Simulated assay, not measured.
Amino acid sequence: MELKQGAGLSNAFIAGGVSGSLTRAILSPVDVLKIRFQLQLEPIKNVSQSKYKGVWQAVKTILVEERITAFWKGHIPAQTLSVLYGAIQFAAFESTRSIAVGLYPSLPDNPVFLSALNTYCGSLAAGGATCVCYPFDVLRTRLIGQGEPKVYRSITHAVKLMYRESGISTFYKGLVPTLTQNALYAGIQFGIYTTLMTVWKNLSTSKKNSTAPFVCGMLAGLFGKTFLLPFDMVKKRLQVIGFHEARKPFGRTQVYSGMIHCFHVVYKEEGLKAFYKGASVSVMKATLVTALSFWLYEEMIKILENARNY
Rank of each mutant, 00 (worst) to 15 (best):
H264P: 00
H244P: 00
N182Q: 14
A158D: 02
T198N: 12
L238T: 08
V255M: 08
V289W: 02
T290E: 06
Y256W: 10
T290C: 12
K150R: 13
P249T: 09
V281K: 01
V234P: 05
Q239N: 13
L219V: 15
P149W: 06
L219Y: 08
K273F: 06
V255H: 11
K236P: 00
S206D: 10
H264N: 10
T226R: 04
G174M: 07
Y276N: 02
K173T: 09
A279I: 02
L203N: 12
G258V: 04
M162P: 00
S204E: 07
T226H: 06
T170R: 12
E148Y: 05
A246R: 03
G258I: 04
K277I: 00
G145R: 01
S280M: 08
G174N: 07
E245A: 14
P149Q: 08
K236A: 14
P149A: 12
S257A: 13
A286E: 10
I188P: 00
A220R: 03
L184K: 01
G145S: 10
Q254R: 14
A183K: 01
K285T: 11
R247V: 04
G251T: 08
S206A: 13
H261V: 03
E269G: 01
R247C: 13
A186M: 10
S206H: 09
P177N: 10
Q189Y: 02
A286S: 15
Q239C: 14
V199A: 12
I192V: 15
G174W: 09
K225R: 11
Q254Y: 09
G258H: 04
V289R: 01
E269A: 09
L222E: 02
P213I: 02
P177C: 12
F223Q: 04
I188N: 04
K207N: 12
H244M: 11
K173G: 10
N209Y: 08
G224D: 04
S280Q: 03
T287H: 04
G217M: 03
V215H: 04
K225L: 07
T198W: 02
Q239F: 06
M162C: 08
D232V: 12
F243H: 15
N209M: 10
Y152L: 05
M259T: 15
E270W: 00
V265D: 13
I168P: 00
E269T: 09
H261C: 12
S169T: 11
Y152R: 02
V151L: 14
G174V: 02
G167D: 08
G278A: 07
K225N: 11
G187I: 03
